[in-house]
Design a protein around this nucleic acid. Structure first.
Lengths: 234, 234
DNA sequence: GCTTGTACGCTAGTATACAAGTTCGTTGAC
DNA sequence: GTCAACGAACTTGTATACTAGCGTACAAGC
């Protein structure tokens, strides 16, 4: 088990174990099916099993780990049906909120959206995918905030994690970033024009094209997937 | 602390503590603000603190408990903004799925829906609110299954818990059950007629009227609520 | 060679002991 | 009488020991 987790330096605080493991799973450092051991994790993080157990339990609730009593803990396979359901939920919620955002937008908020676009443009020019997706998330979160439902973003983040896990299996090309950026520009433009129908259509097209990319990634990484509707008898 | 939890008989299994506490909170047996103690809970359930801690952590993640380190564990107040957001999410998702259900319904599924209505009608006649809401949930779940997104129901259940928690603060009158039942009949009728627009409108009206009732309950039980947008620094 | 019984090592689940911190009552000095 | 300081009793957080069950490797018997 490679586990290039930096458990070194400063003793991990309360939720460090959770955050580190979650990040490793989302990034693909921990591959689906890979086995973990609470004891070994505790040793690696320099803590006892108790905080490790807390983290493992939460990750299990999130669907990232599968704990089999008396057997072991494993990185959960990616279920294609779960990914599709996540897409459905995200699309449904964000298409609704973008309508509200288009109806409620005020000039100050419009400027904030422009700043997000500018940050994305810089990231595209630098071909910096990490910076791009940081600005991407900030923009989506801001749109939902403008819609008046800031807490809904937390829910989106949860379901989006399933999608990001797939996305992280492949590297984004500069062309792809540019395409996404163009889609973002249309969304913002329609929102600024206070055109709910246009904004919703642009958002739906955007999310669909991201999902299509995810589908292509899945097709070329089938070893990590499990499309069986296995009841995860938690 | 009353806590009429039946910790008697058969040793509690894996998630008994969680299920029991969750049920007690949703039913209002444990009131918002009430304090709990892991030690006392462990004694009441006849187990050690470890499984109790697991349950408490999960309930904390769910937003039902608020754990303050070195101080105590308390039943979380009901946040009106969270309730409103839950309503928004539920309405958005169920209005989308009912459209899909209306488009996809087949005769076998239609019969199942009729059976749900029949069960509800019996419950209304007997003024049995528990039986009514059991059939209610089964029907909503079935509609989402018909829409082809069965897993989405799990998400709805999560957000619905916030709404049910408020609903359980008051008893339903027979009149109110009858009104809800009528709304259900319209939803099913429009779905069977393969009328997505009509079904969605009926579903939205239904969910809104339930939410209005929740708002009225909240107005008369303000002591349990907290509308401050407190950041629940998990 | 194949099957089956068995022992060992691993796992997570649980129980318990200890540590760190907060709250609140009490007691002492002023 | 007032207030401050101390301490007892409580809380959750953490560490560790033990339990029960599963998987596997290995050896004995067919």
């Amino acid at each position: 088990m490679p586990l290039p987790l930096s458990a070194t330096a400063r003793g991990p605080r309360q939720h460090d174990v959770y955050d580190t493991l979650r990040h490793a799973i989302l990034n693909g450092d921990l591959r689906p099916g890979e086995g973990l051991s609470e004891t070994k994790l505790a040793a690696q993080f320099g803590v006892s099993r108790t905080p490790v157990r807390d983290a493992v339990r939460r990750l299990s609730d999130d669907g990232f780990l599968r704990v089999i009593p008396q057997v072991g803990t494993f990185v959960a396979p990616i279920q294609l049906t779960a990914v599709a359901d996540s897409q459905f939920v995200r699309e449904t919620l964000e298409c609704r909120t973008i309508r509200l955002a288009a109806e409620r937008l005020d000039p100050t908020q419009a400027d904030a959206l422009d700043r997000h676009l500018a940050a994305q443009e810089r990231a595209v020019a630098a071909n910096d995918a990490t910076a791009f997706f940081t600005a991407d998330e900030a923009m989506h979160a801001d749109l939902i905030r403008i819609a008046g439902r800031p807490a809904v973003w937390n829910l989106i983040l949860d379901v989006k994690a399933q999608l990001d896990r797939v996305r992280c299996l492949s590297l984004e090309s500069a062309d792809w970033l540019a395409m996404i950026f163009d889609q973002h520009r249309v969304i913002i433009e329609r929102t600024r024009a206070r055109d709910p129908d246009g904004a919703e259509a642009a958002m739906r097209a955007h999310l669909r094209s991201v999902f299509d990319a995810i589908d292509r990634i899945a097709a070329t990484n089938q070893e990590y997937f499990e499309d069986s509707p296995t009841d995860p008898a938690r």
